[in-house]
Each structure stands twice: as C-alpha cells, then as structure tokens.
Design a protein around this nucleic acid. Structure first.
Lengths: 147, 147
DNA sequence: CGAGCTTTCTTGAACGATTCCAGAGAGCGT
DNA sequence: ACGCTCTCTGGAATCGTTCAAGAAAGCTCG
C-alpha cells in the first residue's frame, strides 16, 4: 500500500501535539483541508458559516498555532496575503500566477527532500527549500491576447 | 557577446528603458547596490542621508518603477517586508534565517536558469523559479545554545 | 462528577508597511 | 526657452495582522 497518509481524525492529531480540541480549531482544519491555499479571511468566512460567530482572533490564533505544530503549512507568495494548506508531509511546491495570484501545486522537480540544497550554506542550518514558480496562468494568458 | 554585465552608469540604464534620470532614483540605486537585501525604509534613510528631504512615496515609486524595468529585483520572504537588490542577471537564490531574518545569497544549486522547471506546468507560462532556503544562521544558532 | 488550573476565545483597538490622491515641480525633446 | 509629461511632495487611507485584558471553556485529578 502506498503511503496511505490516512488522515487520523483531527482531534487525535491535536492531542498528539498537546493542543486542546476546540470547535474553532476543528472548523479551521476542515476549511483549510477542503480549500488548499486558502487565505485567513476566507478561513474565517467558512468557520463562521460552520459555527456561527467566531472571532477573527480565534481564527488567526488557530492558524498560527496549527502552523507552529506542523499540522498546517503556511506560505506567502510575494505580494500576497498569508495562505494555508494542510501539511501532508509531501514536499510539493507552488506555481503562482503573476496576474491573478492563483496558486497550484506542483511536485518537486528533483524528487527528493529538501529538493535541493545549496553547495555552500554559509553556516546556516537549512531545514527547508521553498520553491515558487512564477508565471502566468492559462486563463490570464488568454485574457491578455483576447481582450 | 557574453553578457559582461559591466555596470553601465545608472543614468544610461535609466534612459535605456525610457525612464527619466532623477536624483531620488539615482540615490535609490546607489543605496540598493551598496546594500543588497535592503528594505524600503532603509533605502529611504540612505536616500535622505544623501539628498536631504525625500518623500517616502518617491522612494516607493522609484523602487517599484525600477523593479518593473528589471533594474532592481524585489523579493519578500514570508513574514518579512519587501527587500531589494540590484538585478545582476545572475540567478542566485536566498538563504533566510528563521530567527533574525537575515538573508544571504547562494548560487543556484542546479546551475541553469531558471534552475528547475516542474514537469507539469499546469498550463502556466513559467518565467522564474524562486528558491528560498529556510534555516537558522550561525549566530542565531549560537545564541540558542548559549543564552 | 466537579473544582480548579490553563489554555483558548472574545472584544476592541493598535500597528505598520504600502498605496492612493491631488497638486506642485522638474526632465527632456522640440 | 517652451511645454508636455513624468515624477515628487505631503498627507491621509487601507487592510492584513497582531496586541491586550478579561471571559469562557477544555482538561486533569481528586
């Protein structure tokens, strides 16, 4: 069987890292899992749709805490707001549209983690290589030529 | 001709792309060239030290315009403010300290431009692969173990 | 099963980098 | 020099994110 990263239920994953299981956190996890690359305000929207009133602060706190504990992954293409995705333990990268900001996942071009390590790390202890491919998505390219 | 990127004087480079030659722009170019990875507010500081009063807006406008014309390169590690460096036409990447935010250049691990291209570009026209290595710099690592 | 200790959430405000706007000023081609 | 534009000034607005203090809710242990 292929690394079936069968999702353990969120509550278990929270407890596993010593976090309390709360409704806002579960709703945040659901929102991010259902919508990779989602921004904080959209997470808030969905969490509120699910639970009713939830403070912005609770959403940010959940996002930050979950990111700190590696359950979520945060990334932030230049010029964009923070975006989140669940941490699947894979090592994919992102393709970002310069025009509309849309993001899609791409597998690591090299295939090994952390993908590529510089020859000379200048004394740094490198733990991650983040690759962002910049370009123009198909629909934006179409718009440009045919306005 | 082997793009010997011998620095043409800034005024020539500005005119070459159809931009007017102004004191703020020249001072911005000097500031960025002398301090790679510099942030906008520090550019403003240095520009003011050189010229006297210069509006924040003029600095931002110069940075943006020069970036648009490929004379400067802008990058923005997650959680950091915008940083600038002169565009030397090389294809180096950045090593960023998670603790103190310091940035150092590293040569492209693969050696070719754009370094790496994903197998499947999902319809995107990719023009750049930006690589950010995350880690902890030597001095921050030292601090942690010996507080 | 409930008390009590912490962690987490709420409310409301602060913050700061970047951008927007309108008008004054300065390059540069003619 | 003259003017047409592009650029800069000054001041304010924006908006994502964080800070702070108190209320609420999970979890642990008796």
């Amino acid at each position: 069987m292929v690394t079936t990263w069968v999702h353990e239920p969120w509550p278990d994953r929270l407890r596993a890292v010593g976090l309390r299981v709360t409704q806002p956190r579960l709703a945040v996890l659901d929102a991010v899992h259902a919508n990779p690359h989602i921004a904080a305000d959209q997470v808030a929207e969905r969490v509120r749709a699910a639970l009713g009133t939830v403070s912005t602060q609770a959403v940010y706190d959940a996002l930050n805490t979950l990111t700190d504990h590696q359950i979520l992954r945060r990334f932030e293409p230049a010029g964009s707001v923070m975006r989140f995705e669940t941490n699947e333990g894979d090592n994919h990268h992102h393709l970002v549209c310069r025009r509309c900001g849309s993001v899609v996942d791409v597998d690591c071009a090299v295939g090994t983690i952390p993908c590529a390590v510089p020859d000379d790390t200048k004394g740094f202890m490198v733990d991650e290589a983040e690759v962002t491919y910049w370009g123009v998505c198909a629909s934006c390219a179409a718009e440009r030529t045919a306005p």
